[in-house]
Simulated scan of single mutants.
Amino acid sequence: MPAPVKLGTLLLLSGALAISACKTKPPKELPPEPGAPTSSTDTGQLGAAVPGSQADFVQIMAGQDTIYFDTDRYDIDSGDQAALAKQAQWLARYPAKRATVEGHSDERGTREYNIALGERRANAAKNYLVSLGVDPSRLSTVSYGKERPVALGSDQQAWAQNRRAVTVTID
C-alpha cells in the first residue's frame, strides 16, 4: 500500500505545481497614464516637456486640448472657440506637427448613433481649426462614440465629461 499513497501524493503535488505555473503575474511596469509622456524624447530635464511634443501640447493647453458639448449637440460655442484658438496657435508654432481630433459621446443611445455623433463633434472641431488657418491635411478625425469614456458613471456629471472632442498631436 505505500506505493499507491506515494503515487497519489506525487500526482497531487504535480497537479498543484501545474496550476501554480498558470498563475498570471502583474506586469513589471504599468503603461503610462493617458497624456503622459511616452518616451524620453517627450520630456527634458526636471520633467519639462520638449517643445513640440505631445507632452508640451498637453502642458501648454492646460486642459484646453478638450472641448465639451451639450447633449446631442456638436456646435462650437464661445468657450470651445477660445480653446480651439489656443490649439491653432500651438499648431502654427509647430507646422510639421499633425493632430487627430477624437470625437466622443456619453453612454446613452445606440453604438451607431454615438459613433456618428462623435464623428460630427470631431469634424466640427477640425473645421473650426481649419477656419483658423490650420492646414486640413495636418488634421485627421476619429470617432470613438461611447467606447472610451473618461468618466465612469451614469449621471449628469459623468455624461457631461464624456461628451467631448480631444485633440492629440502625432508625429
Rank of each mutant, 00 (worst) to 15 (best):
P2L: 15
P4A: 04
V5D: 04
K6N: 11
G8T: 05
L11G: 14
L12R: 01
G15C: 14
L17C: 11
S20E: 10
C22I: 08
C22W: 10
P31Q: 15
G35N: 01
G35F: 03
P37D: 06
T38Q: 13
T38R: 12
S40C: 11
S40H: 10
T41D: 08
G44K: 07
G44Y: 06
L46A: 15
G47L: 09
A49F: 09
A49M: 12
A49Y: 10
V50E: 11
Q54K: 06
F57Q: 01
M61K: 09
M61C: 13
M61F: 09
A62V: 06
Q64K: 13
T66I: 14
I67C: 01
I67F: 04
F69H: 02
F69M: 06
D70F: 12
T71N: 14
D72T: 03
R73A: 15
R73L: 11
I76K: 02
I76A: 03
I76C: 00
D77N: 15
S78I: 11
A83H: 01
A83E: 00
L84P: 00
A85E: 13
Q87C: 03
A88F: 07
W90F: 06
W90Y: 10
L91S: 00
L91E: 01
L91D: 01
A92N: 06
P95W: 10
K97C: 04
K97P: 03
R98S: 05
T100W: 03
T100H: 02
V101T: 07
E102H: 08
S105D: 09
D106H: 14
E107D: 09
R108Q: 11
G109L: 12
R111M: 10
E112L: 13
Y113N: 13
Y113K: 14
N114T: 07
N114P: 05
A116T: 12
L117G: 04
G118T: 09
E119N: 14
E119P: 05
E119M: 15
R120T: 03
R120L: 11
N123I: 06
N123Q: 14
A124T: 06
A124F: 04
K126R: 15
N127H: 05
Y128G: 01
L129P: 00
L129H: 03
L129C: 06
V130K: 01
G133N: 07
V134L: 01
V134I: 13
V134R: 00
D135C: 06
D135G: 03
P136G: 06
R138K: 12
R138W: 05
R138Q: 05
L139Y: 02
V142G: 03
G145H: 04
G145M: 07
K146R: 12
P149E: 05
P149I: 01
S154N: 12
Q157L: 14
W159L: 08
W159I: 03
A160F: 02
A160L: 00
N162A: 11
N162Q: 08
R163W: 04
A165T: 09
T169Q: 06
T169K: 04
T169G: 03
T169I: 14
I170W: 02
D171M: 08
